[in-house]
Every structure is written in structure tokens, then in C-alpha cells.
Amino acid sequence: MTANTLVNSKLVCVALNDKAQLAALEGAFNEAPYKKPPTQPVLYYKPRNTWSVNGAEIEWAKDFDGVDVPAMAVGASLGVVIGKEICRVSAEDALDYVVGYTLVSDFSLPEESYYRPDIKGKCLDGSAPVGPTIVPADQISNPDALRVTLSVNGHLRSNFELSGMQRGVAELISIISHIMTLQPGEMIAVGFAGDRVAVAKGDRVDAQIEGVGTLTNTLGGA
């Protein structure tokens, strides 16, 4: 585990929060095994073994035979940092509990199915770098107006306007705080561009939000 991670005790990620992605997958989501589109935010955890930092090398994953996996992918999200214990708050009050913002990159195996919890894909050691710092909340007037970009080796690969999220930051905090009480330092990665970006061994990945910073990591295995 990375000792100096910015995350305290919990990192909740929101999948399928890109309206364009939901629209594109609507047909599939009306068929088995999904049967109908999600009615609630689709949440997953990056557990503590995944937490890492700006500048860290991301280990290239191995399959169950110990062989390097053929493909990995990355998504980037605004990370919302909880400042005080938060239990069952309304969307109107939710942003009062945010102490700051940061970036979360989610390195994983390519997303193939959303039916079962993706332990194999999402729980790789060191696969959730967070940083570079936590920017105080008062420096971000409207988190839903931010734009998250991902560049690989200096080339722009993904550009996600958070106005395109199915649910905004305050609504997500409210919904999640009705499922679980959140503690100071816990984080929510509120939304990733629907199209995850393919990465290769040795790639440099820059996740960036203007006013929040640039989170840079390099894939290992080269």
C-alpha cells in the first residue's frame, strides 16, 4: 500500500455517469443480463491496495497464469474530498461538506461488462493514483462546470465536460450519503468519460482539470 496516499479510508467511484455513454449503451442495457438501464448511480470501490500518488509507476497487470495482460485502460475523474462526516444530506447542502477537489485516475483492465463487481479489472495494486494535491473547495465555484482531459504521451485522448454527467456532484454526494455515512478524507470519483482510453506499457498518462491540476503517471512493464 502507498503510505502517502491522499485518500482516507474510502474511494467510491461512479461508473456509467456519462450521458453520452448511457445513450450509446441503452440498447444493450435493455437486454440480458441488465434487462433495464440503471435507475441509480452505478458505484464501485477502489480499495486501499489500489491507492497511489502523482508520479507513481502503474504496474502492468498479469493474468491468472502470471502472463502480462494484453490490454489496460484508464479513465480520469474529478475527485471530491469529504471534509466532515456526512450522513443523509440533501443535494442542496451537499457541497457544504466538500473540503476540496483533486484528480483520480482509474487504471484497470478494459471494461467489458458491468453486470458483476469487477474485482479482477478494478482492484489491481496501485491502480488508483490520486493527486497531485487537494485544491480547497472555495477555489472551485462550480464543480459541474469543469472539464477533465486525458493525454497519453502528450496526445489528447479524452475530453469530458462534467456538464455531460448523468448526475452532478451534489446529487451524487446526497445519494451516496443516504447509502453510507462518509468520513473526512473519503473521496468520490464522480464520473469518467464513457470511452476509457487504451494504454500501453511505458505510456505517460496525464489527467488534467484546469484549476485542479495535472496527475501524471507512467505505465510499467516497458
Binding site: V42, L43, C87, Y115, D118
Partner: peptide, 17 residues
Amino acid sequence: DYLENYYRPNLRVKSRD
């Protein structure tokens, strides 16, 4: 009641206080 077919069993079913 809260089961949905996304990352099933989803957090709403299994992650409550």
C-alpha cells in the same frame, strides 16, 4: 429490493451502515 444488474450485488444493497 435494491438489487440492480450493475455490479450486482450493488452498493445500495450491500454497503449500508
